[in-house]
Computed example of a mutant assay.
Amino acid sequence: MSGPLDGVRVVDLTTVVVGPICTRTLADQGADVIKVEAPGGDILRYLAAGSRSPAMSGKFINFNRNKRSIGLDIKRPEGAAALRALLAQADVFVSNVRPAGLERAGLDFATLAALNPRLIHCSIQAFGRGGRYFNRPAYDPVIQSLSGVAGTFERATGEPRFVPMVMTDHIAGLVAAQCIGFALYRRERTGVGEAVEVPMFENMASFVASEHLGAATFDPPLGQAGDERLLSPYYRPLPTKDGYITAHPNDNRQAFAFFAAIGRPELKDDPRFNTPKARSEHAAAFFEIRAAALREKTTAEWLEILAEADVPAAPYSRLEDLLDDPHLNEVGFWEMDDHPTEGRIRRARIANRFGGGMREETLPAPRLGRDTRAILRELGHDEESIATMIETGAAFEDAS
């Protein structure tokens, strides 16, 4: 058996996180992803702390499994020609190069559609076409700042800050993978490829607005934008006698069970708390009661009580606690492998399952240019031609 994208070839001209998370998603489902790297390679090879050898950071390893790497200098005619030959055979082209840069390199949709009419051309960009920000550079913190993500922290805590992970990259990258799947489905019916543009800013603005537009959905607004439950200072793991816990009753059954568990069953008849709407309108009072009650027992005691009451609850986990989480270990989430150059590594397995089959083999994240010779052979180059390209710098390979 093989993954649902078996037989789909993806040419990956992306770097850092937003593009590689998109193409890793496609690779995990069986696509043949060819990562095209310029001299020096993807900056993520060096950007993150933690590596056993140069150009192979732990972060790069996590975002680039199941891919092949070809080293090409596409500023040289022979390198550009090799990339065009790849694209002529490809199903999907993914880049997070700014649109103006793609046009200068002859990699825009119109040019490539003439070369390969079936090509899905996916451009992940900071800002959408038609607006004043179009073609500006941006990374995740810029998008978090502009899209209101940092602003939600100011509402909640009095100080703007960023989510301490590149969340906008992850979201935009996963949206891009989803859009590519949609485009491939349409191509199966029409036989024709298309351009797909995935702007990070608009996607994150939509993400934030869906959650927080609230009363401002209506014209005129019925109140201030923002879900006050999520902006509450109590929307976080809460202290117990000996640590922290998250307890989150939502519907009436859970809320009333929670009231009984904390010894306040009468609250189910309190008009402030007897319906989801009432609890939402009086979220501050509800959350204060919850926080005060949870301080009275240990985390273990509350977990037992709330499990018996079937109230959603969980202990608070630090980053290192994930490595020993019993559920993750029981489902085989953590896999150990021997990387051919980086030694023993831990990786998170593909979380989602397909009954029709999954990718059978896992390719280790590639050294820079690991597959250059093999891919050039697939394009019809003989050994003499490959040697010439490498000698002139049009192509390069891992020297380790």
Rank of each mutant, 00 (worst) to 15 (best):
S2A: 13
G7W: 12
L13A: 05
T14Y: 03
T15V: 13
V18E: 06
V18D: 05
G19R: 07
G19L: 06
A27H: 08
D28W: 08
Q29P: 00
D32H: 08
V36L: 03
V36S: 08
A38G: 00
P39A: 02
I43K: 00
Y46M: 12
L47Y: 14
A48R: 05
G50Q: 05
R52D: 15
S57V: 03
K59G: 11
N64H: 12
G71W: 04
P77I: 01
G79L: 02
A80F: 00
A82N: 09
A85T: 08
A90W: 07
A90R: 03
F93L: 14
N96L: 03
R98S: 01
R98Y: 09
P99E: 02
A100H: 13
A105C: 05
A105T: 01
L107A: 02
A110C: 06
L112D: 01
A113T: 06
A114L: 14
N116G: 04
R118W: 07
I120R: 01
A126R: 06
G128F: 02
R136W: 15
A138R: 10
A138G: 11
Y139M: 12
S147R: 12
T152M: 15
G158M: 10
G158C: 13
E159Q: 13
F162Q: 05
M165G: 12
T168C: 02
L174G: 14
V175A: 15
Q178F: 15
I180G: 08
G181F: 04
R187W: 07
G193D: 11
E194A: 08
A195R: 08
V198F: 12
P199D: 04
P199R: 00
F201W: 11
A205W: 02
V208Y: 12
V208R: 14
A209C: 05
L213Y: 06
A215T: 06
A216T: 07
T217F: 13
T217D: 13
F218Y: 15
D219C: 04
P220G: 11
L222T: 13
Q224H: 14
G226K: 07
R236C: 12
P237D: 01
D242L: 07
G243N: 11
I245S: 04
A247N: 12
F259R: 06
F259K: 11
R264S: 09
K268N: 00
D269W: 09
N274R: 13
N274W: 00
R279I: 03
A284L: 09
F286A: 09
E288H: 05
A292N: 10
R295E: 14
R295C: 13
A309E: 09
A313G: 04
A314K: 07
Y316R: 11
L319S: 09
E320D: 14
L323Y: 09
D324N: 11
H327P: 01
E335I: 14
H339Q: 10
R347P: 01
A348Y: 10
R353D: 09
G356I: 08
E360V: 05
T362P: 00
L368R: 01
R370A: 15
A374I: 08
A374W: 14
I375F: 11
E378S: 10
G380P: 10
H381L: 12
M389N: 11
I390W: 02
I390D: 03
I390R: 09
A394L: 07
A394V: 02
E397K: 00
D398C: 05
D398Y: 15
A399S: 15
A399P: 06
